[in-house]
Design a protein around this nucleic acid. Structure first.
Lengths: 190, 190
DNA sequence: ATCTCATTTAATCGATTGATTAATATTTTT
DNA sequence: AAAAATATTAATCAATCGATTAAATGAGAT
């Protein structure tokens, strides 16, 4: 097995699946079963490794969403796909979203990069158009988008808390999240 | 001025307002204009200081929510108050919620404490009752609660990202969040 | 077989951090 | 005013972490 790749996937799991966003090089090395220095050898620094796997995860997500948004299907189908794809993807690495929240949002990182997403603009325009046609209830498209992502993401990143509060086991909560896909769609299109 | 209290409020601001959840004792001391050792003098350790201010913030929130939930008013009024109170409170320390997400949810912390909240049970029961009366559209009360908090919290903790994505200044976004209070209510009661 | 290059490990450095202890200053009590 | 208690600062320790450098191992080419 390729150790470079193995370190990467191990790190990705530790960071964004297990949620140990501040794992040290030692922890990553141990989990991957390699020497600590190997991390520096392949990735120069811990931070560069982190950035690499984070960007990879973001890239994967963006590609999936772009595929959906740029697909030539009726809006309602597109929305349904978007919910399906986004929720599945965020479930794979729920803590990637958490990192975005705590680290990216608090630092100045956002200010520089994050050029306005073309896909997002496209989607917002489409929402607006549907509202004008009367297919969607008229409101602010920005609110529509915020509602959409709030309803999808929050229950996932808060899963451990909600599971505890409502006393639900893993499977039950997974079922609940599955139900949500249809439910979110209905709420938005009522 | 009382330095002990001053350190506490400074720490609270650094942690949960500015979002520097990993501020060091040095950073806190500098910002508060005191010697580093004073933090250990009053709070023994950095972690105990953190825990203290975090618990205080949680306590404040819980008291406010309890007041609303146990108030003797019609359900719809109660829901409206809850939205008002919760969104205002989370706006004061948005990163307290972020900490909950990344740290508490990823560690085993939740498993031990966090006894099922009586206020939450009360509220869920009330929701169920309203659904049976037909005042609220019938669905799973758990989904109702998750929808409620998702719609309120996510746009706030994601504020920096959404502001960037939609190119909105601070005031515009604040107005947007204010609009949301009525909007969230409408979505849930459609 | 050995030379070369990439890979992997071991040893080490410097910086930072949290915390303790000792020293100094300030306030309160008597 | 002297003594005692409290508050504040300075000095120091031990631990950890990231990163660099040097050494060792292994594989393929000649």
């Amino acid at each position: 097995m390729n150790k470079e790749e193995h370190i990467k996937t191990t790190a990705k799991d530790i960071f964004f699946l297990k949620g140990n966003l501040h794992a040290t090089t030692q922890e990553i090395a141990d989990e991957a079963g390699v020497n600590r220095s190997l991390i520096n050898y392949y990735f120069r620094s811990r931070d560069q490794l982190f950035e690499l796997v984070y960007n990879e995860a973001v890239e994967t997500m963006r590609n999936q969403l772009d595929n959906v948004i740029y697909s030539k299907v009726p809006f309602m189908d597109k929305l349904e796909s978007l919910i399906e794809v986004y929720m599945n993807e965020i479930l794979k690495y729920p803590y990637k979203e958490s990192f975005l929240i705590t680290e990216i949002c608090s630092k100045n990182i956002l200010l520089k990069e994050k050029k306005k997403s073309h896909a997002l603009i496209t989607f917002v325009d489409e929402v607006k158009s549907e509202m004008e046609k009367g297919t969607l209830k008229k409101s602010d498209p920005i609110h529509f988008v915020m509602n959409l992502f709030s309803l999808m993401a929050y229950p996932i990143i808060m899963a451990p808390l909600y599971r505890k509060l409502f006393d639900l086991n893993k499977q039950t909560y997974a079922d609940l999240l599955k139900e949500r896909k249809a439910l979110v769609f209905r709420i938005l299109c009522d």
